[in-house]
Design a protein around this nucleic acid. Structure first.
Length: 105
DNA sequence: AAACTGACTTCTC
DNA sequence: GGAGAAGCCAGTT
């Protein structure tokens, strides 16, 4: 059901739904997961479940497009992965949300 | 079960 | 625009 138990499950599913070359914010995912404002909770799930195969958390960034966290090799690794997918970066750790923010098209 | 922690967000100065 | 503080949600201990 739409309880906390499914929240983590939804976050994982949503992360996999993010199109390649795009990124989503924690707040956006939290909202889609059923809890607008649970941005922190989203990050927690990521950090505790470091499984890139089941949770491509490298496509999830902060509201300003800043790369945060990433427990699979560090921010640098995450940055390279996103750049490799075609994501536009304003700076080394800042993504250009104008072009790379995931918008349900 | 309660308390603390944490990969966030937003407001104010 | 940058720095600091408060608030919010779920997970972990």
């Amino acid at each position: 059901m739409d309880i906390t138990q499914n929240f983590s499950q939804k976050v994982k599913s949503l992360a996999k739904q993010i199109p390649k070359g795009k990124v989503a914010t924690y707040g956006q995912i939290a909202k889609l997961a059923g809890s607008p404002g649970a941005s922190r909770a989203v990050g927690i799930i990521m950090s505790k479940n470091n499984s890139p195969e089941t949770m491509p958390c490298h496509r999830v960034v902060s509201s300003i497009g800043k790369l945060t966290g990433y427990a699979f090799g560090g921010i640098e690794k995450k940055k390279e992965l996103l750049k490799n997918e075609g994501v536009t970066f304003k700076t080394d750790l800042l993504i250009d949300l104008q072009k790379s923010l995931w918008q349900f098209r």
